[in-house]
Amino acid sequence: MYVAVKGGEAAISNAHRLLADRRRGDRSLPAIGIEQIVAQLGLAVDRVMAEASLYDRALAALAVRQARGDMIEAIFILRAYRTTLPRFGYSKPVETGVMLVERRVSATYKDLPGGQLLGPTFDYTHRLLDPSLLGDEPVDTALERDEPGEPVMRVSDILAGEGLVEDDGNLPEGHVAGDLTREPLEFPMARDLRLQALARGDEGFLLALGYSTQRGYARTHPFVGEVRIGEVEVELDMPELGFSVSLGRIQVTECQMVNQFKGSAKNPPQFTRGYGLVFGQSERKAMAMSLVDRALRAEEFGEDIVAPAQDEEFVISHSDNVQATGFVEHLKLPHYVDFQAELDLVRRMRREYEERADAVMRDAAE
Results as ranks from 00 to 15, higher is better:
R145E: 13
F339K: 08
T125I: 15
Q340C: 11
T108E: 11
L133A: 10
I250G: 07
K110G: 12
E102P: 04
A298L: 06
A364C: 06
L206V: 00
P148K: 04
M238K: 09
G25F: 11
F205S: 06
R27M: 14
Y124F: 13
E313H: 14
R47V: 09
R27C: 08
Y109D: 06
L185N: 11
T141L: 08
A74Y: 08
R17L: 13
K266Q: 04
A298Q: 02
R228Q: 13
Q196L: 02
R228E: 02
L118A: 12
G7Y: 07
E162H: 10
V258C: 07
E329D: 09
E186A: 13
T141Q: 08
A197W: 03
G89M: 02
D21S: 11
P148Q: 02
G280Y: 05
L159P: 00
S317G: 03
G178S: 05
A10K: 06
R191G: 04
F187E: 05
A58Y: 09
T181D: 15
R351C: 07
F187I: 03
R24P: 01
L195S: 04
R219E: 15
L345I: 08
M257Q: 06
Q36R: 14
G163R: 00
Q310W: 02
Y353C: 10
A63R: 02
C255F: 12
S91P: 13
E173P: 07
R57H: 13
L164H: 03
L18Y: 14
A190Y: 10
G119P: 02
L133I: 12
V48G: 05
G216Y: 00
L29S: 10
R182N: 07
V5W: 14
A52D: 00
R351I: 08
I12D: 11
V224Y: 07
H318F: 07
T325R: 11
E300A: 10
H335K: 12
G276L: 12
R68N: 10
L128S: 07
L296M: 14
S132D: 15
N267I: 15
K266Y: 05
Y217G: 12
N14L: 13
I77W: 09
Q270E: 01
D320T: 02
T272D: 00
V139W: 04
T84D: 02
D237P: 07
L100Q: 13
E35M: 06
V224S: 01
Y124G: 14
G326P: 02
E313R: 12
A52Q: 00
G263M: 04
A365R: 06
